[in-house]
Simulated scan of single mutants.
Amino acid sequence: MLQAEIKSLLREDISILIKIPNSGKHYLCDCGEASLLTVKEIQSVSAIFISHTHIDHFSNFDGIFRHQIGSGEKIVICGPKNIHHQVEARLKSYTWNLVDESAIEYEIREIVSKEEINVYKIRPPHWDLELGTTQNFLFEDEYVNVDFAILDHKTDSIAYLFKEKDSVTFNEYASEFKKGKWISELKTAFENNDSNKEIRIEETVYKASDLFHLLTKSEGYKLGVIMDHAVCENNYEKIKTIFKEADLVYIETFYKDEDQEFAKTNYHSFASASGKIMNEFEVKEAIPIHFSRRYTENDKLEIETAFYKAFREN
């Protein structure tokens, strides 16, 4: 199951680390100040997901790539329109005469729309952008698929949903057959919906569909991160489409209810509004995050109380 950790202290800018259990692979959501983020964790990040490039979500990008340079890895950066130019500007603001192009490669995926993702590559020492392809999906690796919604924060703000790959398990106690490579063949046939695939067990050939009852499909865990967004129906429809019935969602809850006029002015959410939509969209577990730095620990507790009251309301 995917695991997420908030790496920022109360009055620091937001950053969330997502880990794959039993793997050295991590994903990072936003690059705000993050005192709890270690160098080792940064060096394990294979993909960075930027909601938007307001300073409180992007200020620590330099600190991130500082510890990635020299790894020789390809690291994916996903973000809103113009993210490629902003990454390029940050990288070109330093002198790189002691670094060659094998030190690292960034693949930048610019979210233009739900159907249009521009893919760029950029390498040291000159950091010149190369436009590669345009694709209609954001991110997929051996562990997760990542879907997204483009929300309004008076600029595009990308909300991300990480979905683990569905798993297929074999029920050995329901089988009379000896284990063998036929099990993996059966799983492949099941995943490909190839019911007529011939499966040989010892000296007998079976139709795959006759053995599917030995398998159980478990839906992958769904973890969402919804950063800054205005309280409005258009945003909520987009959130519902992507995040309905998610297992866990971290959601921006910038203001207390009593400060919701500030939320309206600044295109942010507030405590009970975020809790209410998580309830309405049947999210199983929700965690409020990213509070205004004006607030104290007591204010944070007030926000969380209002949020969970709205979230758990029947």
Rank of each mutant, 00 (worst) to 15 (best):
L37D: 02
K222D: 00
E176G: 11
P125R: 03
L215M: 05
E258W: 02
E105H: 08
K114G: 05
Q68N: 10
S167C: 07
E233K: 12
R109H: 09
M227H: 11
F170G: 05
F307T: 05
E115K: 13
E304K: 12
N196M: 08
E302I: 12
K207P: 00
D156Y: 06
S71L: 14
A271K: 05
D156S: 13
I6D: 01
G24P: 04
L301E: 14
I42K: 15
E33Q: 07
E107W: 08
Y143Q: 09
I183G: 05
I226R: 06
E245I: 00
P125E: 00
F58V: 06
H153W: 07
N298Q: 13
P125S: 06
I117A: 04
L215N: 04
A149S: 15
K244W: 03
G79Y: 08
K238P: 02
D210L: 03
D147A: 09
F49P: 09
K19I: 03
A273L: 01
E176C: 04
I122D: 11
A310Q: 07
Y250N: 06
G63D: 09
N279V: 08
V249N: 09
L151D: 05
E115R: 11
K264S: 03
L28H: 06
N196E: 14
R90K: 14
C29I: 15
S71P: 04
V87C: 12
L129S: 10
A159W: 05
D147Y: 08
S218I: 11
I50V: 14
D13T: 13
G220N: 04
D156C: 02
H290S: 13
P124Y: 01
K256W: 07
K197N: 03
H213P: 00
I199D: 01
E5S: 11
K309T: 14
R123I: 09
D247C: 02
I289E: 02
F148A: 01
E110V: 07
A103T: 07
N193P: 03
L186Y: 04
N193W: 06
